[in-house]
Design a protein around this nucleic acid. Sequence first.
DNA 1: TCGCAACTGCCACCGAGTGCCACTTGCTAC
DNA 2: GTAGCAAGTGGCACTCGGTGGCAGTTGCGA
Lengths: 196, 196
Amino acid sequence: MNLRERKKAETRANVLRVANELFREKGFEQTTIEEICAQALVSKRTLFRYFGDKEGLVFPNREERLEAFRGFLRAAELPRNPFDTLRSATRVWGSEYNESRDRILAQQRLVEGSSALLARERVIDREWEQEIAAAFARMTGSDADADLWARVLAGAIMGVIRATMSYWFESECRADLVELGLDAIDKLERGFPVAP
Amino acid sequence: MNLRERKKAETRANVLRVANELFREKGFEQTTIEEICAQALVSKRTLFRYFGDKEGLVFPNREERLEAFRGFLRAAELPRNPFDTLRSATRVWGSEYNESRDRILAQQRLVEGSSALLARERVIDREWEQEIAAAFARMTGSDADADLWARVLAGAIMGVIRATMSYWFESECRADLVELGLDAIDKLERGFPVAP
DNA sequence: TCGCAACTGCCACCGAGTGCCACTTGCTAC
DNA sequence: GTAGCAAGTGGCACTCGGTGGCAGTTGCGA
């Protein structure tokens, strides 16, 4: 890595650190871009070149994460049925989240406190949902029916994931996310029993 | 209704009409609040008193719609199981949407063209999802398990609804939304068959 | 018709985000 | 090593959405 590239990476990391410290101290909306700039010793202009907008400071590496997920889906494609793919994804991401409870919980408290962040979170969810739908469509046929099926299933999946995570957050992330997730997937595969 | 109230209603309707005309002509982001104000003969301050923000001009009567849905859920509660409630809601809203295809399609094209509007749409979906979860929780028990079950199911429901609607939009709303909806609900109740 | 409450308009202001251009800094070819 | 170039940064002025505050207007009820 170049000196130039190293400097860039450092600046980026520094801005990110400063911003999230401030957000956690005073809240997302209460922190202004100028404050972050002052404390991170960069100009406003530069900050916006690194992170397209203020929300980008809370959800960094969005594209990289999505790309990692895409890679996972591609790798899981051939032999599996959709639900097994899903279970395996749940094990990977679920245990990752289990292990970084604290960081994720703090992040989530931030998000819940601002409608701009909530909105952004949903937009990101949608990107993931589209990847799931695309992967499932590749696994099955590619006619209109299969496409509809894939999209509806992907919608249901992101819905249960989001609901499961929200429940997990409320319990301060004490439960095992993998277990909760696998449970939810079972319900999707076999149908929701009318009584819990 | 008072003269005062009539005037208010008229102002509101007028602003709404002007705004949506402009949005459809030039796009949401390309239309400024000042343009709307100039053409609707109100001050910026007044516009924001009627509609909290710019997005509110595209999703008006948000609270009323939600309240109507709440009313529906309350009325449907006692004898039914969750899925029948859901089917009956699908018949009501689905046929309403079927009948106003044109308006809804135009609205949706607007929404798809702006990430701010997409984000707002998701936030509104979430409000509805929470009402569904609350209704289901009332129907079944009220322990933690029942609560989790209700929330996960509600999440799945909003997910399939959103996916179904997005498919419907892409086909220019030619298909029968009620039929599509009932199909999706069946999948949730009985489990998703692995092949379409 | 008088007094009050509701409503509106205006103005100054804030914060996010952009376009533009001058300036600095690291890289590279010679 | 250094000249020249590209990448990156800072600063400034500007736009636009949104808010606070207050003065002025208008409908309503006593």
